[in-house]
Amino acid sequence: MGRKPNETPEIPDDMFTPASPGIVTKAETSAAPLTFWQEAWRRLRKNKGALAGLITIVFLIVVSLIGPLFNEYSYSQQDLVRSNLPPKIAGLEWLGFDGTRSSGENTYEERGITANAWFGTDEFGRDLWTRLWKATQVSLFIGVVAAFLDLLIGVVYGGISAFYGGRLDNVMQRIIEVLVGIPNLIVIILFILIFEPGILSIILAMIITGWVGMARVVRGQILQLKGQEFILAARTLGTSNGKLIWKHLFPNVMGPIIITVMFTIPSAIFFEAFLSFIGLGLQPPLASLGVLIEDGYQSMRFFSYKLIFPAIVISALMISFNLLADGLRDALDPKMRR
């Protein structure tokens, strides 16, 4: 048969001898194996939006904790002499922090006040800088605690429902459907009307129906995992139920649980703000971002600074949490990993 030789004259003849078996063995890739969480963190870092969100959240948490220590005013201390002071910061006058009202007069000079109120004061003379960070603390606390309690109840409920299945699952799902069927605003309003409005009652009111979402997520995930062959394999190996839950099921639902929590926190914060805004939330002098916004909204036309600062903080919180949650969803999505 006419065989055309390969046209590569530069290859020396001694290359045409069988290769030593040493070459054949595949070189081991020596890169250290990444755990799931390490890899998720690597992916999250690549996501600029999520990283910005994370940094903003950390920044706001830190500032809300140390911010009130920067001046001598407390969030509840009233001083009618200092009422309705516009914001004034020494050195930042060019940015508008010069103590002038929207009408152009300088309140500080009129009243002869020398101590600056950085973000201004409210009608009772309470320092808004201190109140803003106190409010951020309270809002974050409500959001985190509500999300954490949702998580606790939801994971246990959803987990039991899915893991044991059968009739129990059926009954538990019907209960959830009933809870979902009741408009949650009515439940919450009734709850707050009966109990005193306060941090505790708001949190309780929110989790009374809030855990349902988490329970559904967890149940769906576990039902899906239960059919996977590695669960069957663990059963045939004689693994106990407890170990099955902790070693096989739980690590695999952690991702979706974290994502759900990250979406729950901002919606809890927002819901609290909404309740405060319609007057069902915290009562002054206690402040939350919703309370401040409500106050600011009343006098928006004359003292717009009362509305602007809490609005900026709540917007930053909402956007940051949502960006971070989105990033986490991409980073933890099991579909990305094979």
């Binding site: 996977q228 062959e229 590695f230 096989h248 695999n252």
Partner: peptide, 10 residues
């Protein structure tokens, strides 16, 4: 299924 028969977190 060699993909679903091993726990990805172990």
């Amino acid at each position: 299924d060699p993909y679903s028969s091993l726990n990805p977190r172990m």
